[in-house]
Design a protein around this nucleic acid. Structure first.
Lengths: 229, 229
DNA sequence: CGTCGACTTGAGTTAACTCAAATCATGTGG
DNA sequence: CCACATGATTTGAGTTAACTCAAGTCGACG
């Protein structure tokens, strides 16, 4: 897919006049990253933000002991690394490609100039940041107020919603990455998946496929109305 | 302080032309809340957002068992409740006045109209949301990657920074509220304060005043390079 | 078929929780 | 100004979810 088509297909740029989209296409810089490659590090100075043309990127924090907390995994058409564009401060987290990934890089000054002249772009960006705040709010709630089984249950329901209510889920990521999203470690996640299977809430092929067998119980788990025994 | 002066003194409206500030003053609705009064609840439909003229407001999540996680405490001149303005969804958290509080309420549609015509307002709002994202990122990191003593240490350093590096700190809030900010419970916080005092990192009057006695050690705690024994 | 990384399972430890009780602080009415 | 009521904080004792460390087991791929 060429640059202009990527831009046209990106939600952030919906409602933006064609000529501005063309302007954007002219200022972006294409970049590609290999699986595992670092895109930016916490503390790095920022010169702009990214949109994913193809591939996947994880944005995460890491502790001195090496435990990792994934903030979000971004896929096609999603912007990431915007925060420093508007705060003027360094990146507050790390970003790494989870697969071969190509991005469009938008230099900060050009982009801000365009925001000044295009209110719909500003409103789209406000919407993107607001959605992200909402997600983070949910993550904080999970980490602080739910136990790991509840977080996993909420995550399964989230995946199900994304594929409009399906009971057959594809995790799309490794169990290790999932543990890092849920704020736990692979051993704990593994034990909980085993328990949920034994209690008949889910079944699994042991790989990345999971079937929701008792949605009611999973919802109760996610809402803290129930616990695994 | 009258409405126009509050608006003129609010960072969000810096750089906004006088005439737009006057427009704003005309569309806002003044509201006051007593200590403990709920301003909005999670799930409520939003019609706009708030700026604090005087007083303090906590925004928080709560679990079915009643444990509370404070997302942020807002003070004079700070806007809150903006997320639903740009997502169109209900409030993702609760807001409650911590003291007698007066707010200016900005109706959504009027405000969005103004954002469309005033790029500097849009950029200011983008900056506010980005700062908030950064704070939430730090909170997620604390909850997921630090133990409670580390979170407390980070919070003390945050307070110290805010009063440009002072060693004499005023908590400004009750220990119970502080526990809720740190994602723990009052008993645990109390034990940790006792330990930190015994190890000579801080001294306290038992109330809301704390003195940093060993900043180096507190920084190490906050960075996970050290633990309480 | 062997190797490597991902995942699972087992055993032991621990930070933080719950529940209960004691103590302290503050404000009110007498 | 004192005595008590109420709420906040601290302390004690016991429990537990989730962690660490270690040892398998599984699966994909060369």
């Amino acid at each position: 897919m060429d640059t202009e088509n990527v831009i046209a297909a990106t939600p952030l740029f919906q409602g933006l006049e064609k000529r501005y989209q063309k302007d954007l296409a002219r200022i972006v810089i294409k970049q590609t990253y290999r699986r595992g490659e670092m895109i930016f590090a916490e503390g790095d100075q920022s010169k702009g933000f990214y949109i994913i043309a193809t591939g996947r990127v994880k944005v995460f924090k890491i502790s001195p002991e090496g435990k990792e907390q994934i903030l979000h995994i971004f896929g096609q058409g999603e912007p990431f690394g915007e925060v420093p564009v508007f705060t003027g401060q360094p990146f507050p987290a790390y970003a790494e490609a989870l697969a071969e990934t190509s991005t469009l890089f938008f230099p900060r000054d050009d982009f801000i100039g365009l925001v000044r002249t295009e209110p719909s772009l500003a409103l789209n960006m406000l919407s993107v940041l607001s959605m992200r705040l909402k997600r983070f709010t949910a993550l904080i709630e999970d980490l602080s107020l739910k136990e790991v089984p509840g977080r996993l249950a909420a995550y399964l329901l989230y995946l199900s919603d994304r594929s409009n209510g399906a009971n057959e889920l594809d995790l799309e990521i490794s169990k290790g990455q999932l543990a890092s999203i849920l704020g736990t470690i692979p051993e704990t996640l593994s034990r909980i998946l085993t328990k949920m299977t034994k209690e008949g809430l889910i079944s699994s092929d042991g790989k990345r496929h999971i079937r929701i067998k008792d949605r009611m119980a999973i919802e109760q788990l996610a809402n803290g109305e129930k616990r695994l025994t």
